[in-house]
Nucleic acid binder design. Sequence first.
DNA 1: TGACTAAAGGATAAGAAAGTCTTTTACTGG
DNA 2: CCAGTAAAAGACTTTCTTATCCTTTAGTCA
Lengths: 164, 164
Amino acid sequence: MLSRPCTYAIRALSYLAMQPPGKLTGSREISGHEDIPNSFLCKILLDLRRKRLLRSYKGTGGGYELALPPEKINLLMIVQAIEGEVSFSGCILEDKECSAHGECALHHSWLELRNQLVNFLETQTLVDLVRTRQARRKKGPKARYQEPVQIKDQMGDLSVKASA
Amino acid sequence: MLSRPCTYAIRALSYLAMQPPGKLTGSREISGHEDIPNSFLCKILLDLRRKRLLRSYKGTGGGYELALPPEKINLLMIVQAIEGEVSFSGCILEDKECSAHGECALHHSWLELRNQLVNFLETQTLVDLVRTRQARRKKGPKARYQEPVQIKDQMGDLSVKASA
DNA sequence: TGACTAAAGGATAAGAAAGTCTTTTACTGG
DNA sequence: CCAGTAAAAGACTTTCTTATCCTTTAGTCA
């Protein structure tokens, strides 16, 4: 239903959302825990950075972190970051958009269904994902706060340095 | 959303559904009208025949016809004939079914959405498609009955002969 | 500065999906 | 039976997606 890169992106981001705030996480840690080929993950993370969903820091102690609080990142943003804006706009029966040359047979019911999907993706945020994952992981202590390893601020437009 | 072969199948079948009952339609006529590569269409038609959605007849005057009345063929049948039974069973986040090892984060809302999709596909039949297509094609006379060119009955299990 | 670390980026490979081509099989009509 | 027609079948090519590899760039730490 969702493409492979897309589910990788969702899983990677929700892994990041589970990390203590301020921590930088390396691609290797993510790919290890989420069982995603590392070099492929790197490209996906790059896309996500370009779409401003995460920030990256090079060099020793570098890594990735969410660019927004988890409750501000919904599934639709992720899907669109990976698949591009075009997703969900087409029609069932033909390649082209069908509104242009008269509606296709299923247009209305399909559109309705599609809107529900988009709405679903828009509603579900990273916190929702994390909540369920952590609840399952054990009935353990939830999101114990942990001393941030580093505090950083954004210095470049895309790539930023990892200095305090 | 639907795979290419799948939309081809839907279009080909709905084209057949628009033909006068009893008429046999060649693959070339279908591929011409529906703008589908002919040799690729043949494979798809073969699948549909194997799944008993249409019948085929070799030799001069041969061709394809629906194996069921159009109102008995819904989109789900077509999709499953092409994609196999497995479609729609997976989970968003992981490849495997997630019910097996504990539900994934989005499982419930996703399942609900999925059911709506399946239900939609189950409800829409070829007549529904044809109705809309014909309404658009002109406001012309609808489904004027036309003398059947040939009457045939099924003689083999899969392939059948085109004799009266 | 030099050794090290980690992301960025590009070139390339592996695999699946989509599409083509050619031969074979089955039937019709004369 | 023979010539013609149309589907069946399978080998093959192309294209796109997914994944890997390797070099470059940017930073840290001693």
